[in-house]
Design a protein around this nucleic acid. Structure first.
Lengths: 231, 231
DNA sequence: TAGATTGTTAATCGATTAACAATC
DNA sequence: TAGATTGTTAATCGATTAACAATC
């Protein structure tokens, strides 16, 4: 209902709040004010209060915020308390990394099955699961009401898999194929959220910074030498 | 020099332009105008012209942009032509995924070595490399002038490894440890770019969308039933 | 020259910060 | 009550879009 009153930038910041609040709980803090949280997180106190206020006033004037209460509210907003179900599709190294990882259980999501298309891998044991055949993915997801699919298949298969997962009623796809999926172009408009993590793009952003840093270093060295020759 | 005149948002978009321009080259397109690129990419033509103009006018009035020229310029800006060197540190599944991946060579970066701390893995062969001992990481990086390190070690070791990589003169660290590194807090101010990819945070952002979608579906179903009971 | 399309300026939109009245 | 700190409003800052003169 009120979903879209909350700015996207605020929603993007929720997981980070979630993380810091959990940390506070771990060290036994009961209360925190926006100024202290601001120092911890390196964002402005104003922004914290503004963000929190979108959710209807978590805090109390003169006191601050109750850590557990705010944490609980944010967990709720993020669906961490909803016990979503997930599958991993594509059992190469990246898929295996997810199968082994605690990322699902740490966030209240239950990993249910692993899929691969290769006969060599189907039937083998990974992280306590017997890998299932990718051809059965749709019926499995439908029958087991799977909410989330992590997609790590080869790029050329990405669109096909995304289409099939959408039609199987999966609500969210975490797409690691480095293939951009444009809803309404590559696939029809759908009630599935596709979050594409474009590792290549991120890598290039790092390369840009590396280039700047190396250029600055070079300039510094030249300056030193240039300074010397002026004597 | 002029580095910081270009807004960060524009820089973030460069890899995506890079990708689409490469695609145009692959299909043999010689020229493109902002309107056509706009349709392809799903961003406004205004934004494309604005972005490109920061780099000093790639285009030509009445003609558009020369695809190869603009692509070349963007490659240059991103350092794709600089032949940076890289290492991967941490040879669990995620590290192996990077060792096997073409992401480095595709962007003009040369993968030089793999490191791990486990005696079981040191000395073994992965993707044509003999895994080296993590204790030798600093001297190796210094001696071989390594520019970029991909870090996939366990979270608890993250800060230690980042510090060591910084002191070894690495210019960029791609941090997959899910441990936030705050420069000036966790590590001293440094001439190293640390890009942390917080997979947990991204996963929770997906969970939020999944929750919204499931809530919308539920509401829809209820409405249908509710409508029926009114008869 | 006429037509097309850029580069740039001005207008709009949205996000962040600053300030402070409300209130615990 | 006095002090502290929120929630909210107004001011600032930055990014996007629209418009158009410059120019190929």
């Amino acid at each position: 209902m009120d979903g879209q009153l909350i700015p996207a930038v605020t929603l993007k910041r929720l997981p980070r709040y979630h993380r810091y609040l959990r940390e506070l709980i771990c060290v036994g803090e009961r209360r925190i004010n926006s100024a202290a949280l601001s120092r911890m997180m390196g964002v402005s106190a104003s922004q914290i209060r503004q963000d929190f206020s979108y959710f209807g006033g978590f805090g109390q004037q003169g006191y601050g915020y109750n850590v557990k209460y705010v944490y609980g509210k944010i967990c709720e907003l993020l669906g961490v308390t909803d016990m979503f179900t997930a599958v991993v599709v594509g059992m190469d190294n990246l898929g295996r990394a997810f199968a082994d990882d605690k990322i699902f259980e740490k966030h209240g999501v239950e990993l249910r099955a692993l899929f691969d298309a290769s006969p060599d891998i189907i039937g083998s044991e990974i992280a306590g699961f017997t890998v299932l055949c990718a051809a059965d993915m749709e019926s499995y997801c439908r029958d087991n009401k799977i909410d989330i699919a992590v997609l790590t298949v080869p790029r050329r298969d990405a669109v096909d898999y995304v289409k099939r997962l959408c039609s199987a009623g999966v609500a969210g796809i975490w797409n690691f194929t480095d293939c951009e999926i444009k809803v309404g172009v590559d696939i029809p408009k759908t009630k599935t959220a596709v979050h594409t993590l474009h590792l290549s793009d991120m890598f290039l952003n790092l390369c840009y910074d590396v280039k700047q840093i190396k250029a600055a270093e070079k300039a510094e060295n030249k300056e030193m030498k240039g300074g010397g020759s002026l004597i």
